[in-house]
Design a protein around this nucleic acid. Structure first.
Lengths: 199, 199
DNA sequence: CGTCTATTTGAATGTACTCAAAAGCGGTGG
DNA sequence: CCACCGCTTTTGAGTACATTCAAATAGACG
């Protein structure tokens, strides 16, 4: 286990070699192929995933099998179904690999066990949860306030790199519109009917 | 300062009298009248608010002065503009009293200062942030997936008490629709065109 | 009773949706 | 190199849901 990876995972806190060794015992490197579902609705969700390389998404499946992408995760992001992870419930979301991906898996029990040994971990996790909370709140506001066109422009502006990696229908499902609507929105933006007013 | 209130604020953890006394030094009781704005967009947001009695809401104001209610808070809930609170930025949201309300104010500095003296507080806050994260994620999914009618039915089902307290136009702004649309939705629901499929 | 505010109703508009079909793109095999 | 196939994106036409603007009704309160 490469200690550089662990430093990258817990970027922002200073870990001793001893602490890194402790962490190394708890995390597991997993290589996942494009298309794989690493978490399925209904399953327990006892892990956090750190994305070392590649790209994943969480999505919700409604009862008409329509997909709603909740979150994309690329290099250095953490991802899970927080609803299930936090409450120890079974997953409401699915997590899918959009590219060949390398993730590091951290079980909740390990995380909680490390709080006493490595107090900084507790702060690190709290910061992560806070950041995630903020991003969800911003996303909620964006969804409520902005038109599809504004959301699309925000998205390409905020995630120019993700934008190139993934299929349009995944972007559409993130924006909460159909691929057809996205196509029309893009056409309109390209023709110059832009009027971006960022929140 | 009543120590029962503090036990209620930090419900779920066991505090010694000494710890309660420490906390008592940091919190401040505030009585606020209906209609008051306790946090305005653009101001710093260094406080968490615990709702002892009454009712508040956070809302976002877009550049056309349309209001979007993000969250209601009634007895025993905590509320703030988490985006500003977490990142020490100026507020994006406003917080308004919908009833005469008694809140207890806890500054972020006090919270963080207490982590070492009362370690349980750190866990308590982490739990709160996790719970809030989950509720925002659920709300995001609800907003993306459900129709206005379904969102309304979920709302009345989840918050039957809040529903009675507050104006329809506040509910509408929470659901992300106009008061006119809410009126039509309610009429339809009352006539029995319901088909509630909870997530 | 009158006034102010909140809610409901009506009519026209707009945005995104569905269904259906066409065009574009990338890889494989003849 | 071209033809074909499967998948993705785009385009078209009609529809549904929520919006806007405007006006009418209902409720609360002095």
């Amino acid at each position: 286990m490469n200690s550089l990876v662990i430093k990258e995972m817990f970027h922002g806190i200073n870990l001793t070699q001893q602490e890194i060794d402790i962490i190394a015992h708890h995390i597991k490197r997993i290589a996942v192929q494009k298309g794989c579902i690493i978490l399925s609705e209904g399953q327990p969700a006892p892990n956090l995933y750190f994305v070392y390389s590649g790209c994943l998404r969480t999505y919700f499946l409604d009862n008409e099998s329509k997909e709603y992408t909740i979150q994309f995760a690329v290099d250095d992001w953490w991802i899970t179904d927080y609803m299930a992870f936090v409450a120890n419930e079974s997953a409401m979301l699915n997590i899918e690999c959009l590219q060949d991906t390398i993730i590091y898996q951290l079980p909740k029990k390990s995380l909680e066990g490390m709080y006493t040994q490595i107090p900084q971990i507790e702060k690190f996790y709290r910061d992560r949860v806070e950041t995630t909370l903020v991003s969800f709140q911003k996303r909620l506001i964006s969804t409520m306030v902005q038109s599809a066109q504004e959301r699309y422009m925000m998205f390409t502006h905020t995630y120019p790199n993700i934008n190139k990696l993934i299929k349009n229908y995944h972007i559409a499902s993130y924006l909460g519109i159909t691929p057809q609507s996205l196509s029309r929105v893009k056409k309109c933006v390209n023709l110059g009917c832009e009027k971006l007013t960022p929140i």
